[in-house]
Design a protein around this nucleic acid. Structure first.
Length: 250
DNA sequence: ATTTGAATAT
DNA sequence: GATATTCAAA
């Protein structure tokens, strides 16, 4: 058969500062249209599909030559998590999940399972305008939330750009991989712990599995099982968490 | 003696 | 402002 694909230009959907291409997946055509419209207005190249299988097919056609995939969580046949797993397995692409479910657990599950980001509906342009970041960081996408904790302990200046002082948006953290010539990584003096999102998620998950009332630093530390993390680290973080919880801080 | 939570320091 | 450290109490 000839390659009868009609409207999929052979242009490489690369992340050259020209155009970032995004594949949007949502069975709700209304939401699909809204997201697509917003993205297009933000100068992203947008391809929309309304079925998870279509998403996989589209990706396979061009070898995953997208910069990012945005998918709804609730879909027939395959939910967002499953799709995210499939895409992660087959391609090296950041997957952003979106859902109307504002339960924190859903968001946590998404991030823990490897999603790059989680957006809650209704989607606003503000939620989408910074998506290029994920496309940019995909270049060296490889980090289990488990291993990276052992490695982020390495910058002496503690100027980790996990959230680079941004707002409330959850983000996936990155850590410098191989030594790029800056091999000052022999840190005997431990830098400050950076409570990245996945680390925090792990922290929360540990508390939840223990039970809020019985969660004490030592127990939390055990459940978290993070090398290098101390009981004091957990205690300090717990103190903040309790403080924020007791007060009216969203 | 160990661990905790709060206060205080960096 | 976030994380570490100190410290008295359990």
């Amino acid at each position: 058969m000839e390659r009868g694909r009609s409207n999929i230009p052979p242009t490489n959907y690369s992340s050259i500062d020209d155009t970032i291409s995004i594949l949007v997946v949502d069975d709700d055509i209304t939401c699909l249209a809204i997201v697509a419209a917003i993205l297009k207005k933000l100068k992203y190249e947008v391809v929309t599909v309304k079925h998870p299988n279509d998403a996989l097919c589209t990706l396979r056609i061009n070898g995953g030559a997208f910069d990012l995939v945005i998918s709804d969580v609730h879909m027939p046949d395959m939910n967002g998590f499953e799709l995210q797993r499939a895409i992660t397995q087959e391609f090296n692409l950041p997957v952003v999940l979106m859902s109307a479910d504002d339960k924190e657990e859903v968001a946590l599950k998404g991030l823990e399972s490897g999603a790059a980001f989680f957006i809650m509906k209704p989607i606003t342009p503000d939620d989408l305008k910074d998506l290029w970041q994920f496309a940019a960081m995909k270049r060296k996408e490889k980090a289990n939330a488990f291993e990276e904790r052992q490695k982020y302990i390495d910058s002496d200046e503690s100027v980790n750009e996990d959230d680079d002082g941004k707002r409330k948006s959850p983000k996936k953290e990155r850590c410098e991989d191989k030594n790029g010539g800056n091999s000052q990584s022999y840190s005997q003096k431990r830098p400050k712990i950076v409570w990245t999102n996945s680390l925090h998620n792990r922290f929360l998950e540990a508390i939840r599995s223990i039970g809020l009332e019985r969660a004490v630093p030592k127990k939390i530390l055990e459940v978290m099982n993070v090398p290098g993390l101390t009981r004091e680290n957990v205690a300090s973080h717990l103190q903040v968490l309790v403080f924020l919880s007791s007060d009216n801080h969203i």
